[in-house]
């Protein structure tokens, strides 16, 4: 393998910039992968394996790999890591790098649109179901509150998400 220090530095900077601050503490022990449900289910590029790729500077090479989206954010890895890497934060930092390059499944666009429009990532008309269980048809949440929706839209418009043309 050719070691390209410039590429390695760039990859580390990007991951840290997206919240994966502990990446350089990793000693590749694999404790994280041993407890990871994603690894167990067969996603090839999570926890130790992903961190190794990133520490070798292989960021763009893995941009299309969907493993990071299989991460459950369960943080079993964070709990067991003896070095304080907080591997889940590295996985999510890589996911953020992918997302801002629009390298994610189109199916997840719906959640962003729902969040922007109703303030709920998961949305369906709840009125009938709520009536049947004896609750008011409208939830007290942002779903039926225009002022709340406007606030959430303002936060999203003024974020890096606002520049992606998803909503």
């Amino acid at each position: 393998m050719i070691i390209d220090q410039k590429k390695i530095d760039e990859a580390i900077e990007i991951i840290k910039g997206h919240g994966g601050h502990g990446i350089q503490k990793c000693v590749q022990c694999g404790a994280c992968s041993a407890v990871c449900p994603g690894v167990k289910a067969g996603f090839p590029l999570l926890c130790r394996a992903l961190i190794r790729e990133l520490l070798n500077g292989h960021l763009e090479e893995n941009i299309e790999n969907s493993s990071s989206w299989g991460c459950q954010a369960c943080n079993r890895c964070t709990e067991v890591c003896p070095q304080g890497v907080r591997p889940q934060e590295v996985v999510f930092a890589f996911r953020r790098y992918q997302a801002l390059e629009l390298a994610f499944s189109t199916s997840s666009v719906t959640s962003q649109m729902n969040l922007y429009e109703t303030g709920h990532a998961v949305f369906s008309d709840p009125k009938e179901a709520r009536r049947k269980v004896g609750l008011p048809e409208e939830t007290p949440t942002s779903a039926f509150n225009e002022e709340a929706q406007k606030e959430i839209r303002t936060l999203m418009d003024n974020s890096p998400m606002g520049e992606l043309g998803l909503f």
């Binding site: 989206w69 953020r96 109703t118 303030g119 990532a121 949440t141 959430i152 999203m156 998400m161 992606l164």
Partner: peptide, 13 residues
């Protein structure tokens, strides 16, 4: 509103 769910804002920024 939404907390926001893992697949939304936490996956972007």
């Amino acid at each position: 509103g939404c907390c926001p769910a893992w697949g939304t804002a936490p996956s972007f920024d």
